[in-house]
Computed example of a mutant assay.
Amino acid sequence: MSAGLVAVGGGSALAAPDSLPAHGKPMPAHVAAPYFEAWTGESPAALAAASGNKYLTLAFLQTAAPGSCTAYWNGEAGQPISRSTFGRDIATIQARGGNAIPSFGGWSADTTGTELADSCTDVDAIAKVYESLVTTYGITRIDLDIEGDSIDNAAGIDRRNKAIAKVQRWADRTGHSVQFSYTLPTSTTGLEANGVAVLQNAVDNGARVDVVNIMTFDYYDGATHDMAADTKTAAAGLHTQLAALYPKKSAAKLWNMIGVIEMPGIDDFGPEETFTTQNAVTVEKWAEAKKINTLSFWALQRDNGGCVGTGGSDSCSGIAQKTWQFSHAFEPFTSGGARH
């Protein structure tokens, strides 16, 4: 797995409701939540409305420099975890019945020592950052995108999972709802050994992992892929791996721990890895049938056909498509999930 999910600086706000809930609503059992590139200066609430998405994963949070225990949006010191940064956008999304999922890490942070648990050696301080997102924004899930150097940083992995466990004990004491998802690279047959090790360490630390999102793109194996078929085999492999980690969970509960993240159109590797609009329809139907937890893609700003033939762009899919076609293909999953 290579390029993965990348971030560089920026942010935005939108005039909207001033009230954020003290205790947010738990996430649906089945949710579509594309990634939003938080550095572009665009409004997540505005793009959520335009694209029809009720839930967005906001990427990314990281420290401004290695060694710091303070997380900022996009690693920018002018964008702290506060109402002034994305607060009104998140309140607007919540007022429409959805929510935001803040995401830590990504390729850029994970390869520069600025992923929070890689940067900060104080478990209590890491936990306080996670808690601050819950109390500041009323969010109920935090995503941890661990790849690059971070997925092999044993000390960071252990600190992160210890912090998750502390936050979960805090949430139980204070009546907050908070889930944690891990976003991890995958092969076409499941996690590599280092991804499994991240989850094993969570088990060892008593940290509950609610969702494992696998990045079903950027396989970098030189083969031409049917991206929908590979999503299915990667998820089936993950299901087997989760069964070994969580032997007391039923097959259905294990499927409901799984999320998949697609990259619409031509991904970073090239045309051999092209996720088509028909792939999106196929994957959504499969996700409903398997009752997985989360459908996502990188990223909302790519969900347009503005650069046919261009691979790996942050602002377009590289294929001919209608604007928001991937969002609309995945949209039934959230409402459909409520029926299960």
Rank of each mutant, 00 (worst) to 15 (best):
L191F: 03
P17C: 12
A32S: 14
V129N: 10
H23K: 15
A29H: 12
P28I: 08
I261H: 00
G318T: 01
L199T: 01
K322Q: 10
F275N: 00
H30M: 12
V134L: 08
G78M: 08
R173A: 14
N194M: 08
Y182W: 14
P332N: 04
G306M: 01
A13C: 14
T112S: 13
W107Q: 06
T188F: 06
S84L: 10
A299Y: 04
C316H: 04
T188I: 11
D204R: 13
Q321L: 12
K249N: 15
E331N: 12
D226Q: 06
C69G: 02
S19M: 14
T233K: 09
D218F: 00
T294F: 04
D204G: 07
V31G: 02
I266R: 00
L47H: 07
I292M: 05
A13S: 15
G113C: 08
K232A: 06
T183D: 06
Q94M: 05
V203S: 11
D267C: 00
N293W: 02
G98M: 05
G98I: 02
F275Q: 00
A91L: 10
V212D: 08
E331Q: 11
I151V: 10
T70C: 13
R159S: 09
D204M: 11
L254K: 01
W73T: 11
G24W: 12
D221T: 14
F217N: 00
A13G: 15
T112R: 05
T216V: 15
F275Y: 02
G222C: 12
F269S: 07
E131R: 03
R96H: 03
G41D: 02
D226P: 01
A125Q: 12
G52E: 13
T274L: 00
S2P: 15
T114S: 01
T57E: 08
F217R: 02
D124Q: 14
G138N: 05
K166Y: 02
T277G: 03
T92M: 12
G113D: 09
T277S: 03
K290E: 06
W39S: 14
T70Q: 15
Q200I: 09
D149S: 13
E131F: 03
A46E: 15
I90Q: 04
F60K: 04
E272K: 03
A236S: 14
V6I: 09
S132D: 10
L191C: 05
S84E: 15
N279K: 01
T40Q: 04
L116T: 04
N279G: 05
H176K: 12
G312R: 00
T274M: 00
L191T: 05
A299C: 15
A163N: 07
C307R: 02
S327V: 12
